[in-house]
Amino acid sequence: MEQQSLAGKVAFITGAARGQGRSHAVELARRGARILALDICDDIASVPYALATKSDLDQTVAEVEAVGGEIVAVKGDVRETADVAAAVDRCVEAFGVPDIVVANAGINLQRGQEPDAQVAFIDTIMVNLVGVWNTVHAIAPLMVERDQGGSIVLISSTNGLTGRGGDGSGAVTGYTASKHGVVGIMRSLMIWLAPHGIRINTIHPAGVPTAMVSHAEMQAWFAGNPAGHTMGNAMPVPMLDPIDISRAVLYLVEESGRHITGITLPVDAGFTGK
């Protein structure tokens, strides 16, 4: 049985229906955290792959409960402040103010032939950057008011530290801009939150084989842009597993990260060092 290092803590996780978000939910629950799982559970017209479903979110609930965790799952869109506010209210009602926030929800619109660069750019910014802002903006003031510290982790990307893969498309530019922007949010809010004992950091994964990457349109983009292939890691690791990112989340939110704030943490098998 895992040590209950997060017993009594409450974790608010976006994009939790599958992939990295589900992994984060299960691993935090395994260590005793109670989970609020938020996901859109619906498609976005410009996204060239199917987004998570209610069935996916139900599976996250089942896997959290299988490790003995408590979870409330909420369907909502991080682009919509009302949806985020409703999820925060549900979290407070069920468990209390979050101690941990993992802003994980994101999209990537890279594809072989881009139908509308402007739409791709704006939709990516709205989910990956505005969605992160909406999440943190809704919860951080409650954490400050409670005055018991906490930890906020924003899931960025290796594209939040580099510009590799840039091809002038709205999708790639929007993804890179949004993931760099997440770092700006973190660095700005760190100054405000640190005196309150609230830590905020970003994690920068290399490629992870989730639905966002493992689909035909992304493979078509790779085929047309071999120099920008985002899985070109320095270590002989083609792609990372979701658990690799979850372990970094745990490092930052557990006692191990109690004095760590304002950092950009690559989990990338050496990708950004190449």
Rank of each mutant, 00 (worst) to 15 (best):
D99Q: 00
A194K: 09
V213F: 14
V132G: 05
V61I: 15
A52F: 06
A103E: 01
R258S: 01
R90M: 13
M1D: 13
G15C: 05
V88A: 05
P141A: 05
V213H: 12
Q113P: 00
V74K: 08
A11L: 10
V78W: 11
V10F: 03
Q110L: 15
P98Y: 01
E27C: 03
G15Y: 06
A87I: 10
Q20D: 02
G207E: 09
V267K: 08
V267S: 02
G184H: 12
R22C: 01
N108G: 10
H24E: 00
G273Q: 14
H229Q: 09
G8A: 05
M212N: 03
L250G: 03
T173W: 12
S178V: 04
S157Y: 06
P238G: 01
G166H: 10
G207Q: 06
R111V: 09
I198P: 01
S256I: 04
E65T: 14
V67A: 07
G160A: 04
Q110K: 15
H229L: 10
D83K: 02
D39M: 10
V172C: 12
M235R: 08
R22N: 07
P115I: 07
A138D: 14
R247E: 04
D167Q: 11
D116L: 02
E80N: 12
I155G: 04
S23T: 12
A223N: 13
I185P: 04
N233R: 07
E145R: 12
D39Q: 11
L129Q: 08
S151M: 09
T14N: 03
I44T: 08
V84Y: 04
D116A: 00
G131P: 11
T158F: 11
V253F: 02
W133I: 06
A120M: 11
N201T: 06
G96R: 02
V102H: 07
H24I: 06
T264K: 08
T124S: 12
Y251P: 02
Q59A: 14
G174R: 04
E114A: 13
V237I: 13
E65W: 06
R30I: 00
N134Q: 12
G149C: 05
R18W: 01
G232F: 04
E65Q: 14
L142Y: 05
S178A: 15
V136W: 03
I100Y: 01
P48R: 03
L51V: 07
K179P: 09
T14R: 09
A52R: 05
R146Y: 02
S157P: 09
D83C: 09
T272W: 13
A94E: 11
A17I: 11
A85P: 10
L109V: 11
A66C: 10
D42Y: 07
G15D: 01
V208G: 00
G270K: 08
I44D: 05
A45E: 14
K179I: 07
G69N: 01
K274I: 14
K274N: 15
R247D: 02
P242V: 04
M231E: 15
V144K: 14
I152A: 00
S55R: 15
V10N: 00
A220R: 11
Q20I: 08
A171G: 14
N201H: 02
D99G: 00
Y251T: 10
G69A: 05
M231W: 13
T60S: 07
P98H: 00
V72T: 13
D77K: 11
E93I: 04
